[in-house]
Design a protein around this nucleic acid. Structure first.
Length: 180
DNA sequence: GCCACCGGTGGC
DNA sequence: GCCACCGGTGGC
């Protein structure tokens, strides 16, 4: 199975952060079965990153979830009630204690990726990573390539707030999106 | 002074 | 043309 035909997806929603400000938080992780295209939720970010890191070689299938097969209904269906982001496959797991964050631009144009370190510092790119790993010898064994700053794309229908054209969906993910 | 946020651009 | 990366800065 080659990568790219099925994407790991995650969901975010807008929450009020302070007066006049909003921020997206990912509140649900989901993966799509490469056989039946149904969605399974993934309970934790940790587990999600584990699936994601080898998604191309080892795509998701329903029976990986205990007691589940493609004959069962999925956990949820894709819709525009929340924002779905097609994540990139095969991103290394965040090093222990580091937290990979997606920050959406207010114009919905793109996400910025950054990592929060165990010390609370924010790393915005490879230059920050290198500086940080040098500054703290206890992290010197961490491979800088474990930090990946490439950002997921925001699906067009999420920007416009309108249903995706079927052609778009198939172009991007080789599947049909079910809409209720 | 910090940092969240955005714009620009170099490399592909 | 895209996008990963980084510089700049406005608002606090």
């Amino acid at each position: 199975m080659t990568g790219g035909s099925i994407w790991v997806k995650m969901e975010s929603r807008q929450v009020s952060r302070s007066v006049g400000k909003t921020n997206d938080v990912v509140d649900l992780y989901a993966v799509q079965c490469c056989i039946c295209f149904k969605w399974s939720t993934v309970p934790t970010k940790e587990e999600y990153e584990t699936i994601r890191q080898s998604f191309k070689e080892d795509p998701w299938v329903c029976f990986k979830k205990q007691g589940r097969s493609c004959d069962n209904p999925g956990d949820l269906e894709y819709d525009t009630s929340r924002m779905w982001i097609a994540d990139k496959p095969n991103i290394p797991k965040s090093p222990p204690g580091f937290n990979r964050i997606l920050s959406r631009r207010s114009d919905f144009s793109k996400f910025d990726v950054y990592y929060i370190t165990p010390t609370g510092k924010k790393l915005r790119g490879p230059a920050d990573v290198e500086k940080f790993l040098q500054e703290y010898p206890r992290f010197k064994d961490i491979n800088p390539s474990d930090f990946v700053f490439s950002s997921p794309k925001i699906p067009k229908e999420m920007i416009l707030g309108t249903p995706a054209e079927r052609g778009d969906c198939e172009t991007h993910s080789n599947k049909k999106l079910k809409r209720s």
